[in-house]
């Protein structure tokens, strides 16, 4: 408490402010949302993610998403989140996929062992090839982090143009969750002689499966 008052006093003195002064209005926020069609968004997303060494796949229906994931995991150990969309796609029925855990400790141990982490994503951002995931009872943080391969599924309606659109839809992420994580490609480093190495602490491989919905299905 002593340091608090000391610091605030020093700040106020530096600024010549009285106690209890309210902040002046900040400059208007700068958010620019381009008008891209679904097709444009998809193309930009796929090319941005692929440039980063990630894999973007578009499928026409949930069953196809299920088949695609099955082809990736081939029955090997995977941890899936409790995301409703994974349910829709029938991911939990795949061999080797585990979803239910008694407690956080068990979930963590499973993530540390699994070869795949499968999650939903609240949004994807087309211009940067990013995923936006809110931590929640449905989405544990470690599933997209500990296993060497991350697979994410989302409906194409959740594919936004970019960060600006995300922040205009969700102006205050803290109101929704204790953690909003943006994931842009596989984990990487260039700390040794600036040589790019993927999969440092997070997944070195990322697959994002975007599923068409009724309007976009051709």
């Amino acid at each position: 408490m002593i340091s608090r008052d000391h610091i605030l006093n020093k700040v106020r003195t530096a600024l010549g402010h009285a106690v209890g002064r309210t902040a002046a209005a900040p400059p208007p926020a700068r958010l620019c949302v381009p008008a891209w069609t679904v097709e444009e968004r998809w193309q930009r997303f796929a090319s941005a993610l692929e440039k980063l060494g990630g894999n973007a796949v578009r499928v026409s229906e949930p069953a196809e998403a299920q088949r695609y994931v099955a082809g990736l995991t081939c029955g090997r150990a995977a941890v899936a989140s409790r995301s409703l969309f994974l349910e829709v796609c029938g991911i939990h029925q795949l061999a080797g996929v585990r979803r239910d855990f008694r407690d956080p400790g068990e979930l963590r141990a499973a993530c540390a062992e699994a070869e795949f982490g499968i999650t939903g994503a609240d949004y994807a951002l087309a211009d940067t090839g990013s995923l936006a995931v809110f931590a929640s009872p449905e989405e544990a943080r470690l599933i997209s982090l500990l296993p060497p391969v991350h697979i994410a599924l989302l409906p194409i309606s959740r594919l936004l143009t970019g960060l600006d659109e995300l922040l205009s839809l969700v102006p205050n992420p803290a109101e929704r969750s204790s953690a909003l994580i943006l994931i842009t490609g596989p984990s990487r480093t260039a700390d040794i002689e600036q040589i790019l190495v993927r999969g440092v602490h997070g997944p070195g491989e990322i697959h994002v499966i975007v599923v068409d919905d009724r309007e976009t299905r051709s």
């Binding site: 990013s130 009872p137 992420p173 204790s178 994580i181 943006l182 994931i183 842009t184 596989p186 984990s187």
Partner: peptide
């Protein structure tokens, strides 16, 4: 580093909330 966005951006507000599986208990 010339990246439009870094690989991970974490926007963290407070400890884990009711029902969450992981994240810190104290923040």
């Amino acid at each position: 580093t010339g990246q439009p966005l870094t690989v991970y951006t974490s926007i963290l507000s407070g400890p884990r909330r009711q029902g969450e599986w992981d994240g810190p208990e104290q923040f």
